[in-house]
């Protein structure tokens, strides 16, 4: 939910980025919640079309072009708002970044998230890399199989979260997905 604050210009209560009364754009938050600023609820399951629609709608209100005749300060705020919206769209549309964001609050793994996967998994990756040297297609197919298993685990985790579960296991799954992606992408070379 967007907090109700006071418009800096007309001092009327204002909800959202633009004051309904006087039309002034409001100072953007330094660290906005990415789903909320697009008017969406945080969720791992997304509809890309709906995300784009929300992004377009929100952009129409705060884009610097809307404030071409306004003061430099307002145009600066419009730029910051729009940059937030563009980042939100990018993170939410990307499966991996969205998962990291939902699990840790940041779209990129932080220092403490870079744990080594368990030895059994690393051995599997090692075997996949060996196989890739001989039979790239087979290696990629197997990697894709493992990938979809991990994806399902991740989706299940996010579903359980809706029923009060935690996302503590997400960074480990995302780490494994990262290894698998390297195997698959490397196979294209």
């Amino acid at each position: 939910m967007l907090a109700v604050t006071q418009c800096w210009q007309c001092r009327e209560p204002v909800q959202g980025p633009v004051c309904a009364g006087c039309g002034a754009i409001q100072p953007p938050p330094a660290h906005p919640e990415l789903f909320t600023i697009l008017g969406l609820s945080p969720s791992y399951t997304i509809d890309r079309k709906a995300v784009d629609k929300a992004w377009r709608g929100a952009s129409r209100k705060v884009h610097p072009d809307r404030f071409a005749g306004a003061s430099a300060v307002q145009r600066r705020m419009a730029l910051q708002w729009t940059a937030h919206l563009n980042r939100a769209r990018k993170v939410i549309r990307d499966d991996t970044q969205r998962a990291w964001y939902l699990a840790t609050g940041s779209e990129r793994p932080g220092e403490r998230d870079k744990n080594q996967p368990d030895p059994a998994f690393l051995e599997q990756v090692f075997e996949l890399n060996m196989l890739r040297a001989e039979d790239p297609a087979a290696a990629i197919e197997r990697a894709r199989g493992l990938q979809s298993t991990e994806q399902e685990r991740l989706s299940a985790l996010f579903q359980s979260q809706a029923q009060g579960g935690t996302l503590d296991g997400a960074p480990a799954i995302l780490g494994r997905l990262n290894y698998l992606r390297t195997v698959i992408d490397g196979g294209h070379e």
């Binding site: 800096w8 210009q9 002034a24 100072p27 003061s71 300060v73 307002q74």
Partner: peptide, 8 residues
């Protein structure tokens, strides 16, 4: 307006 927004 610029000054008041700066204050804000």
């Amino acid at each position: 307006l610029d000054r008041s927004v700066k204050a804000a």
